[in-house]
């Protein structure tokens, strides 16, 4: 997947890729667990966020993310500190 230029687009597109939900239906306060159908999809979403970066982010930090907005903030932090693939 080609990374878009900003973390918000990346997160929203990742959610769309895994769940099929239209990007414009996703809200910042949505819980990630409410957007996926099951734990397998949640794991796929975690992998999408994890695999985008040159250095794997800490899994323990990734799984603390609960909402879409938290995912965006997490990716923003990583974008600042390391290059992406």
């Amino acid at each position: 997947m080609t990374l878009p230029n900003n973390p918000k687009d990346f997160v929203y597109n990742s959610i769309h890729k895994v769940t099929g939900k239209p990007v414009d239906s996703i809200q910042p306060n949505d819980l990630l667990t409410s957007l996926v159908t099951d734990s397998i999809q949640l794991f796929e979403l975690i992998l999408e966020l994890e695999n985008a970066f040159a250095i794997e982010p800490d899994y323990d930090e990734l799984v603390k993310i609960q909402t879409v907005q938290q995912a965006v903030e997490f990716v923003e932090k990583i974008y600042v500190t390391q290059p992406t693939q």
């Binding site: 099951d38 397998i40 794991f43 796929e44 992998l47 695999n51």
Partner: peptide, 14 residues
């Protein structure tokens, strides 16, 4: 679960 397919990427991840 209902049996389903996994991509190689996800399979290797778990």
């Amino acid at each position: 679960e209902y049996p389903r397919s996994f991509s190689n990427k996800i399979l290797a991840a778990f």
